[in-house]
């Protein structure tokens, strides 16, 4: 089913990943209506074009996130939900967390 209206979701960043997105930890965004469904794969491309402020290679490598960034959909690891193929639903909360190594 195609999505006629935009898809409202929350994007969050942590562990330093926010530094690449204007140092803002929480973004309320509306993904534009599109043919087919929004997936994390298409979200990443959209983020690269619309939201990433600097040095995209520190966030995206190839079609996925770089090693060391965890993607969490509604507080669950995206691996549990189909990773890049997860179909995004309205009101989803998607958190990108860069893992910390300091101590």
């Amino acid at each position: 089913m195609s999505q006629q209206q935009g898809l409202e979701i929350t994007l969050e960043f942590g562990g330093g990943a926010e530094l690449l997105f204007g140092n803002l930890k929480k973004h309320q965004v509306t993904l534009p209506a599109c043919e087919g469904k929004w997936t994390i794969r298409s979200l990443l491309t959209w983020m690269k074009d619309n939201l990433l402020k600097e040095r995209p290679e520190l966030f995206i490598q190839g079609e996925t996130v770089r090693p060391g960034i965890l993607v969490l959909v509604n507080d669950a690891d995206w691996e549990l939900l189909g990773q890049l193929d997860y179909e995004i639903e309205a009101k989803d909360n998607i958190l990108f967390i860069s893992t910390l190594h300091g101590g």
Binding site: I97, L100, H101
Partner: peptide, 30 residues
């Protein structure tokens, strides 16, 4: 455990058939 600036992260690996660090992060970060 790990910490930086104002954030911290905590988990337990390799406990009772749970995942290890490599299960979650097979590749090291650049």
């Amino acid at each position: 455990g790990s910490a930086l600036r104002l954030e911290g992260q905590l988990t337990v690996y390799n406990h009772h058939q749970g995942p290890c660090y490599r299960c979650i992060f097979p590749k090291p970060p650049p």
